[in-house]
Design a protein around this nucleic acid. Structure first.
Lengths: 380, 380
DNA sequence: AATTAGCACTCGAAGTGCTCGAGTGCCAGA
DNA sequence: TCTGGCACTCGAGCACTTCGAGTGCTAATT
């Protein structure tokens, strides 16, 4: 594909993204003052169509990008706008203002991204399986009920109510809690199983039946912290885009989005591919006139991955695009960030935004986790 | 208004609700085999229109109910279907299966209601201001951070991470926690203020500055438990109803629904009116042939309130109806349940459902709270 | 006095046929 | 290799028609 074809393809995608209407040769020449006549463009467009990058809704209409067209655009033609540096201060403030719990930071990331992109955002809570358990405390609430508080090594706190045998009193419970802590503290969550936890039973002299129930409940509580939470924001925003005029299609999409765990699973699956794809991307990148700086800035950005239309293995997403990226906090903790919008999406802008937010979240979270409780300044 | 008019009005509303199309005299006679000719019905319809119960979209079209028409229907003409008794077992099971925390019960109530009605459901968490604080524990997580666990008198547990001065060690913290508990245990949340809580400072000999910060954080944590949480489910379901074909209107509606706290505030405001309205309702109720048993069963049901179209004081809700009811757990605790759907709503069915769910939630929650941890059977 | 049959009238939905304009492909000539 | 020109295509938009389900009114019937 020669440079002129690229320029034309880029112009067509840009125009179609803007107007949501098939673009014709003449108006293309006018709007992007290309130095050729419309007839030339027509010939090029016919070739691009033959190559599979463009489609026509009917014989005498203009062209619109095919999935393959979008793919080429995203892989090679994109220009990524810079985010102004003052925005960095703003987003950090937004993510940490009055922050109490780690989950709020994730929630706010989703909110910020939906707001900035005007599409739907999905953020997954970090996967903690690779981190270790620091503390575990079990506290009596009333006979038969207790609360388990877990502290993970990056300073993350989880808790959960449990049922315990009514016969256990506060002293016994403390003892069991300490036994568990001695036995598990420092272990990776991944390595904690029903077997490892039951060795705590040997440290106490309480009747085994009583202890076992508590151990089991504690185990469930620990495993619970490995569950991935899904934060979705901006669902309703998609309604404002013209491709959602078709209510049936919209309904099908929302039916899928409701199954949050499925969406989350899909995002995690993509993580590996993402790495590979990003590396390839850097090799085959080509700088073209209309996208100055694309290559230069891209190297600084976190890797991202774009899935277009049919490439998305989820129902009802045939007309959508899904951009994902992985945030990292330290070496061990990572989670996913995504934006879902119509295929006709401002790819450059969204990719800039998602990369930017990724970086902000990773940085802020790292500060927060490593500095722990001493960062009083973050509080207001 | 005579009986014939009532029958006709009811038939029109029923038909319109079913088809979403203006109903004409002839088809009305056919479908509801009324014993009059279409001409007679026409005359009656003209009068009903004059009285303000019906409107015509244009001269030669059929009639559809006005807000006032719906109002009359809801106040006097409704027949409330019975919910089969086996459903009661099902809902109780659904609400309590694998239940760990009170909030899950509320969440599931919203889910159940959205599923059964196919509209949007809103459930507010109970208002605890009138209940008392039972226990408060503060637990050290690391220097500078702690977790506050609060137990309220109905056995509800809340917790919250707080920052504390890094100088405080575990022993000091426990001491402060116990001082607070001595000072506040048994007090109504409503009665706890910064002043009452600061009397706890006198019970310890730690430096006042350190203690005060912890007290303040504990205070915030306590006040936090009074915050009303809003659970909304079935948002996207509304899209499937024909009145949501108009995407702009849908967007306006969703813009309002996003402001959950506002919606919640509105629902609480209605609570008082509801009581009065329900009492009146029972007085003026009239039994008509086509609604046998309406009066009889209605007395057993929890009070409910219906707001139709313009009566709803929220933006973008002009074409919706809002049905609300108040659930009660014991005497002191109450919260709201609501369903929002198009004005053209199956009022009878929805009212039956919401009343049914109300009763189920109230009963189940009461069992749960009063029996506390001993109800192991609820666990699986 | 209440009901009904009959009739003229209304109006939107749906179909038809027309023009217009923004597209196209192709070919001959610069 | 590019471009000007031309014939062709097709949907959007508009005017026009038909059709049917509705209306209101009046006079006849019960």
């Amino acid at each position: 594909m020669d440079d002129r074809k690229k320029t034309i393809l880029k112009a067509i995608v840009d125009d179609y993204v803007r107007t949501c209407e098939p673009v014709g040769s003449k108006s293309l020449v006018e709007r992007y003052n290309l130095n050729y006549s419309s007839a030339t463009i027509r010939n090029e467009m016919a070739e691009l169509e033959e190559m599979g990058f463009l489609v026509k809704p009917h014989t005498s209409a203009g062209r619109m990008p095919s999935d393959k067209g979008y793919r080429a655009y995203v892989d090679n033609l994109l220009s990524l706008p810079e985010i102004p540096p003052e925005e960095e201060i703003a987003v950090r403030h937004f993510l940490t203002e009055n922050l109490r719990e780690a989950r709020e930071m994730i929630e706010r990331t989703a909110e910020y991204l939906a707001e900035k992109t005007n599409y739907l955002s999905v953020v997954l809570s970090p996967q903690y399986s690779d981190t270790s358990l620091e503390q575990i405390k079990i506290m009596m609430i009333e006979p038969g009920r207790a609360i388990v508080v877990l502290v993970l090594s990056p300073g993350v706190v989880h808790d959960r109510l449990i049922r315990i045998p009514s016969l256990i009193d506060e002293k016994d419970l403390n003892e069991i809690g300490q036994a568990i802590e001695r036995c598990l503290a420092g272990k990776r969550l991944n390595d904690i199983t029903l077997v490892t936890i039951s060795s705590a039973a040997e440290e106490t002299e309480l009747p085994e039946a009583l202890v076992n129930q508590v151990l089991y409940e504690a185990y469930v509580a620990i495993k619970q912290t490995e569950r991935i939470e899904v934060y979705i924001d901006g669902k309703y925003r998609l309604l404002k885009h013209p491709e959602f005029r078709d209510v049936d299609r919209a309904s099908r999409f929302y039916d899928t989005m409701r199954q949050e765990q499925m969406v989350a699973g899909y995002m995690r699956e993509l993580e590996q591919e993402e790495e590979i794809n990003a590396a390839e991307g850097l090799d085959t990148l080509e700088k073209i006139e209309s996208a100055p700086g694309a290559l230069a800035t891209r190297k600084d950005r976190p890797a991202y991955m774009v899935r277009i239309g049919q490439e998305i293995a989820l129902n009802g997403m045939e007309d959508m695009s899904f951009i994902t990226t992985t945030y990292r906090i330290g070496r061990r903790i990572s989670g996913q960030i995504g934006v879902i919008g119509p295929k006709r999406m401002e790819y450059g802008n969204i990719i800039s935004q998602i990369s930017f937010v990724n970086k902000a979240l990773s940085d802020v979270a790292e500060d927060h986790y490593t500095l722990g409780g001493d960062r009083q300044t973050l509080e207001d």
